[in-house]
Design a protein around this nucleic acid. Structure first.
Lengths: 213, 213
DNA sequence: CGGGTTAGCTTTCCACCGTTAAGTTACCGG
DNA sequence: CCGGTAACTTAACGGTGGAAAGCTAACCCG
């Protein structure tokens, strides 16, 4: 109720035009978090939340897609920081992978709409970033852990990328299934056990499977 | 170009009101296939393709979501038939799982928009069906194969559902990553090897991992 | 054959969406 | 204080999903 117009934002001073950009990003992210609904993040709603008119958005983002893309990049950084802090206490790379996986699924379940726009939209930021040779630390760190597992002899030697991709596939598959099936009976009790089982499948899988190619 | 109005459909005779329903479904599916774009399947576009006005759609579907849902149910049936025919020649349940998995990924890559509405939307038909105790053969047949693997002693005994879910997670994860990353460098060459590697990870995983719970 | 009933479909409208083109306002350097 | 321009607004376009209400043609019955 009452998502009506808020106060008008004071015009920025000369040279501070970029202020609006970050305000838009912040408002959009907050909107996504509060409503828990991607559809609520419309250009008009964001503009209204910032206290500005819709066309002003286009002074900083070419289109809605680019706004969402910018949000994603921010979320990816935050996700990487989350993972790195969780992993910091782990003693082995294998344990790191386990912790990483658990954190991944938990993040998805706790922030489903964030997860959606990050991993379930048409234009996938991770793919686009890799394509444009950008760094995506959250993925690179996963690959690093797999590589360390290889160096430690706990995963067969070779290119770490397929293994990392396979692990990502397992947790991403599980997460997106869980997200789309919040009500699926008998899935969300024993949730931790289910997650760990999937991680075991992935980890034992890359330990025992022959490298592709 | 020229997606303009087509001819007006002749009114159905009394008692044949349901004819329009299947015409709508068919047109929507065709539209999805031809354009390869979910956004092209708007109520208005479908109505236009059928030769009818938009509100007529609502005589047969409560809202757009229900129309998409109906399309999904149809697609799930077709997918199941595809899988069953591909699997019919396999001699072992393990081989069936492999074939099933390959067919799954291939289907996703060949019909990305169909795949999207089936598995990557907010309301997941499979989950909803399970919740409402409907049958979803395409999933049940997967569970059956896992069960048969257990009976054959090639997968540790227990509840087949977690294993089936894990396998689905792997292929679903891979498929959705591939779909969202059509241009990701070095992913789509060696595609078959990559798919088989993921399947090996999943299969070796459920063979070696301890049951959850 | 000729009306009445009603299934089958339309007309009209609403509020919202993303986006663009053109206009306005207010800051700030000269 | 004034002109230039950065920072925004106003107004509009064509699209969307959807609700309310009206029309029309097919069939049944006398």
């Amino acid at each position: 109720m009452a998502t009506t117009t808020t106060k008008r934002r004071a015009r920025a001073r000369r040279g501070e035009g970029d202020k609006l950009r970050s305000e838009i990003l912040g408002a959009a992210q907050r909107l996504l978090l509060d409503t828990g609904d991607e559809e609520a993040v419309s250009i008009r709603a964001v503009a209204d939340a910032v206290g500005v008119t819709p066309p002003s958005i286009y002074l900083h983002f070419a289109d809605k897609e680019e706004l969402l893309y910018a949000i994603c990049r921010k979320l990816f950084e935050e996700l990487d920081e989350l993972f790195q802090s969780e992993v910091s206490n782990s003693s082995t790379p294998l344990q790191s992978l386990l912790i990483r996986g658990r954190a991944y699924v938990r993040f998805g379940l706790e922030h489903p709409e964030h997860y959606r726009i990050m991993f379930m939209r048409k234009r996938d930021p991770i793919v686009e970033a890799r394509h444009s040779e950008e760094d995506i630390p959250v993925f690179d760190h996963l690959v690093d852990d797999v590589r360390r597992c290889m160096e430690a002899g706990v995963v067969p030697q070779g290119d770490p990328l397929p293994g990392a991709l396979a692990l990502w596939s397992v947790v991403h598959g599980l997460t997106s299934i869980l997200i789309s099936n919040k009500q699926m009976p008998g899935l969300h009790d024993n949730l931790d056990a289910l997650i760990d089982y999937h991680l075991a499948v992935g980890l034992l899988g890359i330990q025992n499977a022959a490298q592709p190619g």
